[in-house]
């Protein structure tokens, strides 16, 4: 039984999509709960996992996520994360985690300077994370991206540290699972699509697993992340 809390910032626009996707992998009928957490509140309501969804938190006219990290709820999310609580940020949620320093690196403007919405392929670089525990190594999963600022950047020392600590969770790849330059949609360092913190309990990714979680929409590859989350947090 797990209780998921999806944070709603005023400019979140993937919160409802995330709630629906989580409910499909963690149904209420099986005792799971998915609730929304309001950005002005200080109460995490006892959730086991906090999700920061996609969108434009406070408009993102400054840097994406730069203001959201100072919101009341984020004070609690930061405390929760520091105590080992599981936190996942998707797209704008990843940007907020990076701005808050909960995951390493920064998300910069895409190399092409344009917003990109399209299906991309990712592969799990490690399966030692609850956020990729369900993934088959070497396999490509089709999960869409939709962002203008998704180019993951970290300096060479930082990258080495990520590698040494097994913090690179997903990388952009081609349809066969090969991590190639051509498969990198936004210029991210080392094709990084998703990283965790050193402790492994906080994770951010640019692709949207909740958009790849419906047979009706023709793509269920996102379940690999969401189901992994459900299994991996061990609640």
């Amino acid at each position: 039984m797990a209780k998921f809390g999806v944070v709603v910032f005023p400019g979140s626009n993937c919160d409802e999509d995330m709630v629906l996707a989580l409910r499909s992998v963690a149904p209420e009928a099986e005792g799971h709960q998915v609730i929304k957490l309001w950005h002005k509140d200080h109460d995490l309501q006892g959730v086991d996992v906090v999700i920061l969804p996609g969108g434009f938190s406070y408009g993102d006219y400054l840097r994406s996520g730069a203001i959201a990290r100072f919101s009341p709820i984020m004070t609690e999310v930061i405390n929760f994360a520091n105590k080992g609580g599981h936190v996942m940020g998707v797209c704008n949620g990843f940007q907020i985690l990076a701005e808050a320093g909960l995951v390493p690196g920064a998300l910069l403007h895409n190399t092409g300077r344009s917003f990109i919405c399209r299906n991309v392929n990712v592969t799990a670089t490690t399966t030692n994370s609850p956020f990729s525990a369900e993934a088959v190594p070497g396999q490509a999963y089709t999960i869409p991206i939709a962002h203008g600022e998704g180019r993951f950047f970290i300096n060479a020392d930082g990258l080495k540290s990520l590698q040494d600590n097994d913090q690179i969770i997903y990388q952009y790849c081609d349809a066969t699972g090969q991590v190639t330059d051509d498969a990198n949609p936004n210029g991210s360092v080392y094709n990084i699509a998703g990283v965790s913190n050193k402790a492994g309990n906080v994770f951010g990714m640019m692709p949207h697993p909740e958009r790849a979680a419906s047979a009706l929409l023709g793509n269920t590859d996102g379940f690999v992340v969401l189901k992994g989350l459900l299994m991996g947090v061990g609640v």
Partner: peptide, 26 residues
């Protein structure tokens, strides 16, 4: 053009993975 627009938010767009002559949304 199309890639600069978010065509998938709302997770109801049936034409993302199956394009058709009209846009189809749940």
């Amino acid at each position: 053009v199309a890639r600069q627009y978010d065509s998938m938010v709302g997770t109801g767009t049936l034409t993302t993975n199956k394009p058709s002559d009209a846009g189809v949304v749940m």
